[in-house]
Design a protein around this nucleic acid. Sequence first.
DNA 1: TTGTATGCGTTATCAT
DNA 2: ATGATAACGCATACAA
Lengths: 349, 349
Amino acid sequence: MTTTIKDVAKMANVAPSTVSRVIANNPRISEQTKRRVREAMDYLGYHPNFNARSLANRSAQAIGLVMPGSADKAFQNPFFPEVIRGISTIVHEKEYALYMSTGQTEEEIYEGVMRMVQGGRVDGILLLYSSVDDRIMNYLVEKKFPFALVGKPLKDEQSITHIDNDNFQAARDVADYLISLGHEKIGFVGGSSRLVVTIDRLLGYEKSLRSHQLPYREDYIIHEEFLEKGGQEAIRKLMALDKPPTALLVMDDLMAFGVLRTLSEMQLSVPNDISVVSFNNLMLAAFSTPGLTSVDINIFQLGYEAAVCLMDLISKPDQKPMRVAVPYHLIERQSCKARTVQKEGSGSM
Amino acid sequence: MTTTIKDVAKMANVAPSTVSRVIANNPRISEQTKRRVREAMDYLGYHPNFNARSLANRSAQAIGLVMPGSADKAFQNPFFPEVIRGISTIVHEKEYALYMSTGQTEEEIYEGVMRMVQGGRVDGILLLYSSVDDRIMNYLVEKKFPFALVGKPLKDEQSITHIDNDNFQAARDVADYLISLGHEKIGFVGGSSRLVVTIDRLLGYEKSLRSHQLPYREDYIIHEEFLEKGGQEAIRKLMALDKPPTALLVMDDLMAFGVLRTLSEMQLSVPNDISVVSFNNLMLAAFSTPGLTSVDINIFQLGYEAAVCLMDLISKPDQKPMRVAVPYHLIERQSCKARTVQKEGSGSM
DNA sequence: TTGTATGCGTTATCAT
DNA sequence: ATGATAACGCATACAA
């Protein structure tokens, strides 16, 4: 049916193995026969069968992408397309293909990953999130299957290749910034507390408060999904408090939009009534009203570096685990404002 | 190394072929042995090798995604993640996997598609754009390889399965809308003129003008990339005209943002000085200032329906080509305003 | 430098 | 109801 290596061999008057060698550009084949074989390939429109090749080779020339929830969920947040952009550039360079798992529940995703891995569909995996005690990561570790993590593992930092920002420091910087603006009641709107990135940033936030002798109030800490809706939920809870915060550290721009929208529905003004800083610096951050002050975490680069590391892991059998810290920086826009001095004034700063 | 069907067979005291039948849940195997085999599979943590299966089967249980330019380019526009969301839901239901081709130039993408197809990596292809005289589409047609097109083919409409909006009518509606607002000088900011969607909408726009006895001016037609930058370029050209338009039909929200931004840099007000309507109704449309009046083309559904069709094409050998028209509707926000009556007043409407 | 034979892990076609 | 065996298309160790 489809043309195989044998057809080419026949046409070029050589053995199939010779054709195979020509494909691999084996130096021990004479230029003459190479040319002859290549002509035959061109003429017949031959293309190698990947499945057969993978089978004989045990390599698939493809890497798998694992997102939290299936693509139809994750892609709601522009974070993922953007990491994938970074990944894609390097994957393309290496002539690899990209494979996306689909699955709604954690169980389904886990199954999908097992199938990818054991089924020999992919040579390596990129884990695009890091959560506490993740089955999938445990599985990969145990299997000693090449993978890189976008994010930080909770433990085994030394043995797991991972690429992230210094989220502890980033959150601390942000809180410091808010405090320097005179804010003392700062809310934290984060993602699931099972996400390591949430944990890290919460720690950084806490550290900042403590170093400024500010109280750390549990009721200022909210955990929601990284979506607009999450932000809406969060801000409702916070504003219902007896003493609502005057500033917010929001972990995701999308959430921040939810916050902004709800606040404006409540007739509250950002930044006059409340200041907001968030993370990711998505394109939307520039377009919202007011412009959103946001931490640019270099999402693209996160993906790019992760792909580079994974490729190393795949090609160099005894590559040591790596850790790459991608720089971040605060982009100031119009969502923050200095607070007029408090009456209670503990005089900090 | 990895556990194969043979290991399972040995452990369950059956032949490999029997194990294979159990996997396929062949009814001619007794429940007893099925149970025994399954226990062995569980115990050994067996997972079938996809490559071997595909090889024997000539089916990959995967479909390929083809975007204009590689992911790292295309994903700059939220359109693509959103179509993929739609695709992903149905692909996941059918337990298929998703392959993404990577490639920068048209040549590279073409090569990638050939490799996917002839290499047996995928059982079908989703073409996420439609351009005039597209090599890739021609190749797929010629190969009679199952594929569905998101968009409309320029010719062979009857024989190519495609999913789109009625873009002619949509653009006509939009232009009518602008005209009903009193605008007579309406600019058209579109994508590449090689894209069928551009062609269709341009036709609809023209039709609207003509039916209202309004002049169709070449210099009001701009073609740029579907990115913010494209919009910036476009509006600069238009505003440099002797009689710049008072209203714009912009083909993409991202472009529209570019337009908005540049206009505001020029100290021009939307909608007071100029009205803007665009397409796609991305999340950003709601967040921009002013809120962007945009045509919701149901991107998610576009992807969803396309995947459904492709699955039919794959599973039913003699499935006829299909055409699905996804509805659209105009979402009015604040970027358009009625024009005060013109002095020259041809009195239309 | 090139050809021969074998294996990669499954499925499918015969048998029994 | 189950087993033996031959593909599937390619790569590679071993010969020549």
